[in-house]
Design a protein around this nucleic acid. Sequence first.
DNA 1: AAATAATCGGTCTTTTTTATCCTTTTTCAA
DNA 2: TTGAAAAAGGATAAAAAAGACCGATTATTT
Lengths: 148, 148
Amino acid sequence: MLSTTCKYAVRALIYIGMKGSEENRANARIIANELGIPMQFLSKILQIFVRKGLLKSVKGPTGGFFLARKPEEITLYDIVKIIDGPGFFETCLIGTGLCQSSTNKIERCPVHDRFSAVREQVVNYFKSENIKGIIERMGHDERILLKL
Amino acid sequence: MLSTTCKYAVRALIYIGMKGSEENRANARIIANELGIPMQFLSKILQIFVRKGLLKSVKGPTGGFFLARKPEEITLYDIVKIIDGPGFFETCLIGTGLCQSSTNKIERCPVHDRFSAVREQVVNYFKSENIKGIIERMGHDERILLKL
DNA sequence: AAATAATCGGTCTTTTTTATCCTTTTTCAA
DNA sequence: TTGAAAAAGGATAAAAAAGACCGATTATTT
């Protein structure tokens, strides 16, 4: 459903939300080791989020990453949209293009009407799920994260 | 959400359901041309379904493919499971392994409980959507299919 | 029987995704 | 001031997904 890259991204952002702060940054080497993600690959992913404004970074020893926004303002929807692209939420289930809800029924894909209700559930879930909520549900215990 | 291969597969099976019969088979070249799918790649996909028992094939001139089951007995769930694998419906949203609903809450991934409700909606939809229903909803008019 | 047309199956190539390597830049601390 | 630690960035490599090629086989038509 989600790409490997995207799953890495979500787990890393949760981890940074738990362990990182402006004063006490989380660095890529440790995140990668803890979460079992290839470190150089993770670095690339984190760089994307810095460019997109979800993370801030500090170079040098004691450097690392921390959330650029409040954790309740970073949703799964934001993350997936950045990594897997907005198409994840928009493209036709069985076609290549957008599943535009064109008004004339003849133009619509044959699964559009029935699937769009389900898709809406998915989108709503991704929009409602945010880093803060996840961390709270984990009881601020990062051990669960290490086994995914 | 679904792989390109899987989308090709669904569209091809719908097309075969509409145009193919045991006496009057649909052949890969025409299906590929009509649906805009690379013909050799489509052949590979259709071969998989022959092996899995969803399609039957006949060689030689006037040969081609037709459904091995009643169209109401081929669901989107069946197709996705064969092409994208059962993992599509089972693997953890943000992890690599299975999202087994282990009884001790500490072992579960932090999005499991909330996402599993959504996942169930998705699974139910895929199981309820079948080739016959789709064809009927298209009014047996294949033109819609050609534009996806 | 021969020619033709179609699937099958294997291999090969291309593209995308995932992962690694290596160098540069920045910052901290001894 | 120098060395180490960390992010940033470019280039390359490996793996997976998507797509193309071709010979073998089989069935129909002539």
